[in-house]
Design a protein around this nucleic acid. Structure first.
Length: 440
RNA sequence: GUGGCUGUAGCUCAGUUGGUUAGAGCGCUUGGUUGUGGCCCAAGAGGCCGCGAGUUCAAAUCUCGUCAGUCACCCCA
C-alpha cells in the first residue's frame, strides 16, 4: 500500500523470515568447500554485453527481461539476471586456462510478471566449476546439487537430465529439428513460430497442447541419434556415474534450457511443493566467450532459487530455527537507574550475553509486559531500592521465580545460565518469598 | 507482455436488495491503588472502504479507468 510497499516483485525480509536465509547461506558456506569451492562475489551490475553475449542475444532473458540502464558516462549497464556470465567475465579474463571452483550467493534481477515463486529481485545460490571438461565433473556437479538439497531439507525432488550436444552437433541437430518441424510449422503457436528461427529446441518444451502434440509425434525418444557418437558417450558417462551413486534421475529428451550458453549436459530439478514455477534448480555444462576474448571458457554449474528452496523445504515440513530472542531484558524504575542499567547491559553484552534495556518512564506493569513480549529468558529489575542496597532483582520469566542478589554478582549469576540454555531455572533456595512468585 | 480473481484498521476478514456517526477478532497503548509479565477485565488509539472518474437524492456497495496484490499463461531458479 502506498509508499510503504516496495516496487512490484520485490520483498522486504524481516528478522522473523531471515533465519531461513541464514540457514541456506550457512549450509552453502559449510558444504561447497568440501568439494573445493570457494565463495566469489561479483558485481550486481555489469556491462550489458556481458549478459547479452554471454547468455545469448536471442534468449527470452536478454530479449525482454533485463533491467538495463545508462549510467553517468553513457555506459550501458545491466542488473545481473543470472550469475554465470559475470563470473566468467571475472575469472575468464584473469585466469585463462586454469581451473577454478567457485560458489556464489546473491540477488538477481529479471523484469518478469511476478507470480508464485517468481520475483523481480530473486536470489540464487550456485556453483561454477570452470576450466576443465569431463563427464566426471558434470556428474560431480549434479551429485553435489542433490546432496546440497538434502542438507537444506529437500528430498522429494525430481531430477531431469538431457544433453544439448557439442558445438559441432548443434548445426546438424538444429537443421534436423527444423526439417522435422517445417512440415507442421503453420500449426505451431505464435511463440513457437518465433522459436523455429531463434531456437528450434525450445519448441520441444512448449506447453501449448498443439505444439506438444506435434513434438510428441517426432519420435524424439530416439533423439540420441541426432548427436555425434562423442556427445552420446559423454552423456552416458555422466548418467553412469549418477546411477553408480544411486542418484535418481530421468532422461528427458525434451529438457531444454533457456540460456544459449549450454553445451552437453543440462539438468533441472523440480519440486511439487512449488506450484507453477516448479523448478528449484537448474544448470549444465556451458561454453561462454567473455567480451574481449577469443577463447571460450568452459565450465559446469548450477543455480538454485533461494526463495524456491525455502518454499520447497517448508512444504516438506523442514522449518529453520526460530529467530533468536534476547536473553536478558532490563527494566529501570525511576530516572536514577537508567545510567547504571545502560552500563549493565553493556557489561552483559561484553560477556556474550544478549541484553536489551528498557528506558521508558512508565509503570512496572507495562515494562514487565514488554519484557514478556521480548521473549527474554530473564528480566533484571533495578530502581532506587536496589541502587541504595547495591542489589539487582533477577526474575526467571519461564517460572516467575525471582531473587534479589548483590549488584556485583549479577553478571556472574547470569553467566551460570548459558545463553543457549533458555530453559534455565533459578535454584529453589534462591527464590524470593517477597516477590510475585505465583509461578505457573 | 496476455488473461482470471482480489483491494475495508497494523494483521485476518464481516458489511444484507446502494440508505444515516464504518464493524469484529487478533495485535497495539494505558489502566485494573504500595515496585512485577503471561490468563482475565476495562478504556483508548488507529480507516480519504487502494486511487481517479461516472451513474444516483444517496456509493465501501453499481460502471469504467488506473495502480497494487494474487493465480495462471509465458519464462525461468
Amino acid at each position: 500500500m502506498g509508499i510503504f510497499s516496495p516496487p512490484p516483485g520485490v520483498d522486504d525480509l524481516l528478522p522473523e523470515a531471515i533465519t531461513a536465509w541464514q540457514f541456506i547461506e550457512k549450509t552453502a558456506a559449510a558444504f561447497f568447500p568440501l568439494y573445493g569451492f570457494g565463495e566469489i562475489r561479483t558485481p550486481i551490475f555489469e556491462y550489458t554485453e556481458v549478459f547479452s553475449k554471454g547468455i545469448g542475444e536471442q534468449t527470452e532473458v536478454v530479449q525482454k527481461e533485463m533491467y538495463t540502464f545508462e549510467d553517468r558516462g553513457g555506459r550501458s549497464l545491466t542488473l545481473r539476471p543470472e550469475g554465470t556470465a559475470g563470473i566468467i567475465r571475472a575469472l575468464g579474463s584473469i585466469e585463462q586456462g586454469s581451473a577454478r571452483r567457485v560458489y556464489y550467493i546473491g540477488p538477481m534481477f529479471r523484469g518478469e510478471r511476478p507470480a508464485a515463486g517468481r520475483k523481480r529481485q530473486f536470489h540464487q545460490v550456485g556453483v561454477e566449476n570452470i576450466g576443465s571438461v569431463s563427464p566426471e565433473l558434470d556428474a560431480e556437479c549434479i551429485v553435489m546439487l542433490t546432496r546440497f538439497l538434502e542438507k537444506i531439507g529437500i528430498r522429494k525432488y525430481s531430477l531431469k537430465i538431457n544433453t544439448r550436444g557439442d558445438a559441432a552437433d548443434r548445426a546438424a541437430t538444429d537443421a534436423t529439428l527444423r526439417n522435422l518441424f517445417s512440415k507442421k510449422k503453420d500449426t505451431l503457436c505464435e511463440d513457437c513460430k518465433k522459436r523455429f528461427d531463434r531456437n528450434v529446441w525450445r519448441i520441444l518444451d512448449c506447453k501449448n497442447p498443439g505444439c506438444a502434440e506435434i513434438s510428441a509425434s517426432l519420435e524424439l525418444e530416439d533423439i540420441g541419434r541426432l548427436f555425434s557418437r562423442e556427445s552420446k558417450t559423454y552423456l552416458d558417462s555422466v548418467t553412469n556415474i549418477l546411477a553408480h551413486e544411486k542418484i535418481p534421475f530421468v532422461l528427458d529428451p525434451r529438457l531444454v534450457r533457456g540460456l544459449d550458453y549450454y553445451a552437453h549436459t543440462v539438468f533441472e530439478v523440480s519440486h511439487d511443493g512449488l506450484g507453477a514455477q516448479n523448478a528449484v534448480a537448474g544448470g549444465g555444462r556451458y561454453e561462454i566467450t567473455p567480451p574481449g576474448s577469443k577463447n571460450p571458457v568452459r565450465g559446469v554449474g548450477f543455480a538454485c532459487g533461494i526463495e524456491r528452496l525455502i518454499i520447497a523445504a517448508s512444504s516438506e515440513n523442514h522449518n529453520p530455527a526460530p529467530e533468536k530472542k534476547p536473553f536478558v531484558f532490563i527494566v529501570s524504575i525511576g530516572k536514577n537507574a537508567k545510567l547504571p542499567n545502560f552500563s549493565l547491559a553493556e557489561e552483559l553484552r561484553a560477556k556474550g550475553i544478549s541484553a536489551i534495556a528498557d528506558f521508558e518512564e512508565r509503570s512496572i506493569k507495562s515494562a514487565m509486559r514488554s519484557a514478556n513480549k521480548s521473549g527474554a529468558a530473564f528480566t533484571i529489575i533495578r530502581g532506587d531500592n536496589e541502587l541504595s542496597q547495591k542489589t539487582t532483582v533477577i526474575k526467571n520469566m519461564s517460572d516467575g521465580a525471582q531473587a534479589e542478589i548483590p549488584e556485583s554478582k549479577t553478571i556472574e549469576y547470569l553467566s551460570k545460565y548459558s545463553p543457549n540454555g533458555l530453559s534455565a531455572r533459578l535454584p529453589e533456595q534462591e527464590r524470593s518469598q517477597s516477590g510475585n512468585a505465583q509461578a505457573e
